[in-house]
Design a protein around this nucleic acid. Structure first.
Lengths: 153, 153
DNA sequence: ACCACTGAGTTCGGATTCCGAACTCAGTAT
DNA sequence: ATACTGAGTTCGGAATCCGAACTCAGTGGT
């Protein structure tokens, strides 16, 4: 393994996705985004809906706010109260969420899926694919290859 | 022992995504899948590539094998040695991974050199789409709709 | 005035999980 | 005989997670 390490000059720590997963890669964050997409905004509602422990919810929302996925908005003055709304960046996580839901439907053994995702105009159950612009064709994961981006080293 | 209580505490729990995130929703699992897609297969290579602690890697790989995302394959007899390969289900996580990578590229503040995913035959950077079989067309997340599967409640 | 209630948290102790470092074990190479 | 390899396991301490109970400002009912 040492030889392999020497030959591999590309270090894979410190990449963008690792940074992202340090924010979003836990048991709750994606579920919080999903709840946000379903219209949930208030602390106690997140708490009841997910069954997350309150101290953990506090910490998680703070982190998601810090990284721009939720924003903390005052919605009432008299007793000052805040709620949490998805930002544009938070909404932009929906493709990832959809992909995970799709995977869950197909591969999760623990059944009882809640919803099936369909193509809205026609109601057909959707499939997922990668699209190659230059080939003008869809393809599956077997035709995916990783290429190191050229930036410094 | 503690999980029992979590399982009994079924409110909105029990949906497929929650089950999935209990398997894959941690800081390492998605990164392990990504490493698998990059061709990494051996214990020490995962360890070295991700900087994950060995006991955690052991537990994580065991869980991913149990849930059918990796398989443990003997690749040598003399000293019997095993490696970990992505299954079909594991490969099928790549759309979710791609969605996260693309989100990272766009919204993550920390942006270092990463791996760009391309269409292997032609080298073009891939895009992501949903595919409707009956319409024979691709579409984006805005045209996705959720339909409740038949279920009590 | 008194009391219950609401929403958004905080505090508490205990259980679980994470970590790096060092160790094991069978087999190989020098 | 010694060193090394690959795939783990064992160890203790640090960090995180959990439910339950508490706080705090304001509101509404009697």
């Amino acid at each position: 393994m040492y030889l392999h390490r020497v030959m591999e000059n590309v270090r894979h720590t410190g990449t963008a996705i690792e940074e992202t997963l340090r924010v979003v890669g836990d048991r709750w964050s994606i579920l919080l985004v999903r709840a946000g997409l379903r219209g949930i905004r208030r602390f106690d509602d997140f708490c009841d809906d997910l069954g997350i422990a309150r101290p953990v919810l506090t910490e998680r929302l703070r982190r998601l706010v810090k990284f721009g996925i939720f924003e903390r908005v005052k919605y009432q003055d008299k007793p000052v109260r805040y709620e949490y709304r998805l930002t544009e960046a938070g909404l932009a996580l929906s493709p990832a969420l959809v992909a995970l839901v799709r995977w869950s439907e197909e591969y999760s053994q623990e059944s009882s899926s809640d919803v099936t995702l369909v193509h809205a105009p026609c109601g057909t159950e959707l499939e997922q694919a990668f699209w190659c612009r230059s080939c003008q064709s869809t393809f599956g994961p077997n035709a995916v290859k990783g290429v190191a981006s050229q930036l410094d080293s």
